[in-house]
Nucleic acid binder design. Structure first.
Lengths: 295, 295
DNA sequence: CCTGATCAATCGCAAAACGGTATCAATGCT
DNA sequence: AGCATTGATACCGTTTTGCGATTGATCAGG
């Protein structure tokens, strides 16, 4: 019965079968039958049959007014669904770790996303990398920007944006601040501030393993959550610490960043989502980031 | 595309093709194709195909929410149209002349109508008989209760409720108030209050003609619109006047009603509407009145 | 590791819905 | 009277829709 509605609306608006048929691009007899069926199923006449032509009656006017709204709402519903499917409306809950937004490519991609898809609710959720992996699997975020660990990719899809590593942050004026080559063996006397294991168990373990490989055991004074915090503690002169290479240029005045030659913990900052369950909005964001680094 | 909506809603609510197919009383493969067609035409997937079963995706949720409303509104629209066709909702503009509502059969039918069709807006419009005939033809009222003149029935349909005639209203204590038989010849000295010609040209002319037939020419003191007014003027002793027989029992204390033997102007109080264009609500009212007098 | 159960997708065929042309009956206009 | 217009009807071909059988993939249980 629903399928008869567009036919009826056409006839109701024209109050003339021929013009309505032309508008619908069908022949007039077909239209006559559609209307007859509709009237039969409704159990009510919708038009008064005049000796010449037809005119809407009371029931017809009711159905014209109500039915027109139904058609319009259906059109809107289809458009909204299509836009949702294309990722032009909806919600994107995007996890990001403490450093992700500091990369110009990421920041500018997010600005571009906002501009291009103003009807998408972009919810930026700061979360440690570990929490993002859990959040993706639990469905509490739709995509994440975080350090991807090769052992943890099961069920996730995505691509790398930035390849990163660690630099040593030293207070300006520290005895090693101006040394040529630094290696782990130079750091046995230092007190370290270390990224917390709760933030990223896997990354933490890899850092420790990289030290152990060189026979080095860091003297960990305190654990802390973000690179920002590490830098401010280092600036105060209390300790030294490793921060991602990407912090270069963002360090405060009292801090210098130096490469440690025999300490490398390669990290990949990825945009990731649950494999096969990426909402369209996430794909739109991916499309904006993809050109910036390989897929 | 509209026709696919009920299929989609069923699958969306069940998130399971088999149960949805059972609910729709069709086979599962047919349903699969309906959904595929809808997805193709929308240009957006509506379900995530899981290894086992399906689940609504973002676009699907949007269409489920919007589409469900569309279906519900369509159902309501159909019901409203059907009820309008049955005369259960809508508006009935009913003209009535000054005496119509004084008949118990009419008053009780209107009460019954209100009770039985509470969703019909019953608009009671007091109008002289003449104005009602014009109003019906102009479409300003849907039906009328008035004195039908045989010469004026063209294009109208309806049936008679009451057959009426005129009585003479006299002030109590009038010299003729207690006379046995009255005839027009007794009234040559009287001053008359007379129904206005603007209220009913045809009726006015018939009354004058009935007088002339008997060689009587009424001494018309003033013209006036309603029988109520006639009675109150008569009660004041200023004049005498003819009022419909139906006023018997409704006359004020100072007035007596007497038959004038040789003065008869038969009137038919009809319920009438435009032939072939009676709205369903008018038919409902007619059905309540019809049993009371012949059709 | 097999077996049966479950679920959506695909295939082939039949029925129903739908649309088109030709025509009719009634009416209005010239 | 003759012609144009309007909606209704009749008949026929095409498209859509539905069904049954089957497949392919996955999951649960022994």
């Amino acid at each position: 019965m629903l399928r008869h509605l567009p036919y009826f609306i056409a006839v109701a608006e024209e109050e003339n079968f021929q013009r309505a048929a032309a508008r619908l691009k069908i022949a007039q007899p077909a239209l006559t039958r559609r209307i007859q069926e509709l009237e039969r199923k409704l159990g009510a006449r919708l038009f008064d049959r005049l000796p010449r032509g037809v005119r809407l009656n009371e029931a017809g006017r009711v159905l014209r007014d109500d039915g027109k709204r139904v058609l319009e709402e259906f059109d809107r519903a289809c458009q909204r669904a299509a836009r949702a499917g294309a990722g032009e409306i909806g919600r994107l809950r995007l996890g990001y770790n403490d450093v992700a937004l500091k990369f110009p490519v990421v920041a500018s991609a997010l600005r571009e996303f906002r501009a291009r898809y103003p009807d998408v609710e972009l919810r930026l959720m700061p979360m440690p990398s570990e929490a993002q992996r859990a959040g993706l699997r639990a469905g509490s975020i739709d995509a994440g920007l975080f350090y991807m660990e090769p052992e943890e990719v099961a069920g996730l899809a995505g691509f790398t944006l930035i390849e990163d590593d660690f630099l040593l942050a030293l207070p300006r004026g520290h005895r090693l601040a101006d040394r040529g080559d630094l290696c782990l063996a130079d750091l046995t006397e230092e007190r370290f501030i270390w990224p917390s294991r709760t933030e990223g168990r896997v990354l933490y373990d890899r850092m420790i393993a990289a030290c152990r490989e060189r026979g080095f055991s860091p003297n960990i004074e305190m654990e802390i959550l973000t690179a920002d915090n590490t830098l401010s503690v280092v600036a105060s002169g209390i300790a030294v610490g490793f921060v991602p290479l990407s912090q270069l240029g963002a360090e405060p005045d009292g801090v210098v960043l130096r490469k440690v030659a025999d300490f490398s913990v390669p990290m990949r900052l990825d945009l990731a989502w649950v494999d096969g369950a990426a909402p369209p909005v996430a794909e739109r964001l991916a499309a904006l980031l993809k050109p910036l680094k390989r897929g």
